[in-house]
């Protein structure tokens, strides 16, 4: 299909460019926005693979929640870019070395025949009509992989509790409000109606 290839290459191009921009642009807010663009392009490529659930969840979780918080923090930072660049020339040789090693490793994997090469991954066959990626995922997660799934959930719960526990601290000497008592306020707490007999002004 020509159109599918067109969509794939267009989104791949945007994805690679955006990923490169994430680490090259100077402004961290731009970095975060390029990362959002990269997530979107990746989601589009997943859609082409008929993995619509994963694609949309990628957008919900990373773009809708994680990146919003990222932007939240990054926009509040007052970053001075000069000290960040100071060590650039000093670290350059090490960085180049690491980059070369990683590139060579990747190329070895990509060019090797028989184990992990590109020739080992044929173009995926289109799924039969009526196939639902959401249903397939759900059935696997809640039958075959039920235990790992539940364990992952518990691990995340522990992480949530730990994160909250880390931020809990008692600071003495600050004024706080007690919403419960504010909500419980009734009219009797602040207003007292006094019955009085009406009086005539005294005649002078």
């Amino acid at each position: 299909m020509m159109i599918q290839e067109l969509i794939f290459y267009a989104h791949s191009l945007v994805l690679v460019l955006a990923a490169a921009m994430v680490i090259t642009v100077r402004n961290p807010v731009y970095s975060a926005l390029y990362l959002v663009l990269a997530f979107f392009s990746a989601a589009a490529i997943w859609l082409l693979l008929e993995a619509e659930f994963l694609a949309i969840i990628l957008v919900v979780v990373y773009v809708g929640a994680v990146m919003v918080l990222f932007l939240f923090v990054v926009m509040m930072l007052d970053i001075n870019l000069v000290p960040l660049k100071e060590g650039f020339s000093r670290y350059l040789p090490v960085a180049v070395l690491v980059a070369i090693v990683m590139a060579v490793e990747l190329l070895m994997v990509l060019w090797s025949k028989g184990r992990l090469g590109v020739d080992m991954f044929p173009i995926p066959a289109p799924n039969p009509e009526g196939y639902s990626n959401t249903r397939a995922l759900g059935e696997l997660l809640y039958s075959k992989y039920l235990l790992p799934f539940e364990v992952a959930g518990v691990v995340l719960l522990v992480a949530i509790i730990a994160a909250i526990a880390l931020t809990l601290r008692k600071r003495p000497g600050i004024k706080t409000q007690n919403p419960a008592s504010q909500v419980r306020v009734s009219r009797e707490d602040s207003v007292r109606l006094v019955k009085m007999k009406s009086e005539k002004p005294r005649e002078v």
Binding site: L33, F53, I56, V59, V60, V63, G64, A65, L71, T134
Partner: peptide
């Protein structure tokens, strides 16, 4: 589409970007 509901959830959560930017 089969994933209609999470599609809607994804898009409603995106509207905040306009405000932040």
């Amino acid at each position: 589409i089969d994933a209609g509901l999470i599609y809607v959830l994804a898009l409603t959560s995106l509207s905040v970007y306009g405000v932040i930017i």
